[in-house]
Amino acid sequence: MKEQILQLMGTIIKLSIQHPEAEDLLIKAAARLKEFEQRFSANAEDSELMKINRQAGIAPVKVDQELFELIKIGKEQSLIADSALNIAIGPLIQEWRIGFKDANYPLPEKIQSLLPLIDPAAIQLDEKKQTVYLEHAGMAIDLGALAKGYFADKIIADFKKAGATAAFIDLGGNVLTYGAVPQRADGRWRIGIQNPFLPRENYVAVVKVQNESVVTSGIYERKFDWQGQSYHHIFDSQTGYPIKTNLASLTIVSGESLAGEIWTTRLFGRSAQEVLAELNQLDDIEGIVITTDQQIAYSEGLKGRIEL
């Protein structure tokens, strides 16, 4: 297998593929990921997404078909009752800045003033014209909770179309596998699950997968300490503060990477017990929960596929 490592989207990206023209396909994949970053970034002033945000309350913006598609999926998922996913969360993210050098603790009145601006129902989509309009000035879409999964699915689709026999994508901890891993008799890839209480590359478990994605969301990745309290980057749209949860991390194993992104964020506002109960009722979606008191549990469908 040929491998390429890139530094993009603020993370390390690893691409591997088994194909006679692997090198050429890896170059094309890297170019496509750079294009995606340019289009979907909520932090680059000149991205296509930022054009929408800058025109909030002013005018609809015509966008590329893929950006429109992900915003549409994101809006639908954000409007589901009890979902912790909200693509209109941009104003809160920019105010708290958790994960950035200038992170700060906003004044309560500032948070209150932002709550009316994070309503996903106020994102207007015109399918015919391919336009996106944010109804109120100050609104901002942030696709950070979904974008990597969407990109991974698109790259794997390209690899499949080109006739790859095996491929592996790691977009900074968001993993998608295709085909059988060449050096294993059972053909399954081994994916390490990060221990949320130790530095990167320390794994608490290994899960075996094939033609599946492994996506982890956790409160350990981006944190901000203020007056003896620690705040993470996953927000409660009702309060404007980070979600209160006993989850340290939630990993979803699914067929598509975007599904993994959706479910890790959607379920994050619930207790570990509620998350497991939900996972055990979902078809083709499995998961691993690690609690803040260092307990680990997983859904029934992963039995026999996990090594602790």
Results as ranks from 00 to 15, higher is better:
131 T>L: 07
294 Q>D: 05
25 L>D: 02
211 N>K: 10
248 A>K: 01
60 P>L: 04
307 E>W: 10
268 F>M: 00
130 Q>W: 09
298 Y>G: 05
126 D>P: 04
146 L>H: 01
70 L>W: 07
187 G>A: 06
41 S>N: 05
196 P>L: 03
299 S>L: 11
171 L>V: 11
6 L>M: 00
182 P>Q: 00
273 Q>A: 14
190 R>C: 12
287 G>W: 06
89 I>S: 07
265 T>S: 03
69 E>V: 03
83 S>P: 01
181 V>S: 08
256 E>V: 08
70 L>V: 13
253 V>H: 04
259 A>W: 13
258 L>Y: 02
272 A>T: 00
7 Q>E: 14
142 D>W: 08
31 A>I: 11
202 N>V: 14
20 P>Q: 11
207 V>W: 03
102 D>L: 08
241 Y>H: 14
186 D>M: 09
252 I>Q: 04
11 T>Y: 02
189 W>C: 10
126 D>Y: 10
219 I>K: 00
271 S>F: 03
67 L>R: 03
248 A>N: 00
74 G>R: 08
103 A>C: 06
70 L>H: 05
186 D>Q: 08
84 A>D: 02
130 Q>L: 13
74 G>Q: 11
11 T>D: 01
221 E>N: 12
215 V>I: 14
114 L>R: 01
306 I>D: 02
267 L>Y: 06
178 Y>H: 11
57 G>W: 00
191 I>K: 02
39 R>L: 14
108 P>R: 03
272 A>N: 05
83 S>C: 06
144 G>S: 11
187 G>D: 06
184 R>V: 06
154 K>D: 12
224 F>Y: 13
37 E>F: 11
218 G>E: 04
138 G>R: 01
278 E>D: 12
276 L>I: 13
7 Q>T: 13
25 L>Y: 04
279 L>P: 03
184 R>P: 09
285 I>R: 01
72 K>Y: 11
199 P>S: 12
66 E>F: 09
159 F>R: 04
118 I>V: 15
95 E>M: 15
287 G>Q: 06
115 L>I: 13
6 L>N: 01
61 V>M: 07
203 Y>R: 03
271 S>T: 11
84 A>C: 09
269 G>H: 04
160 K>W: 07
59 A>S: 15
65 Q>V: 12
204 V>S: 11
58 I>D: 14
218 G>M: 07
177 T>V: 07
269 G>Y: 00
97 R>I: 01
303 K>Q: 13
98 I>D: 00
109 E>F: 08
12 I>F: 06
14 K>Q: 13
123 I>A: 01
258 L>Q: 05
159 F>L: 06
243 I>G: 03
33 L>R: 00
16 S>V: 09
88 A>I: 01
80 I>L: 15
131 T>Q: 05
300 E>T: 15
78 S>K: 07
229 Q>Y: 12
93 I>Y: 10
236 D>M: 08
270 R>I: 12
289 V>Q: 00
198 L>G: 08
248 A>L: 06
38 Q>I: 05
214 V>N: 03
171 L>Q: 07
273 Q>S: 15
145 A>S: 14
140 A>Q: 10
111 I>N: 04
248 A>W: 05
172 G>Q: 04
163 G>Q: 11
154 K>L: 12
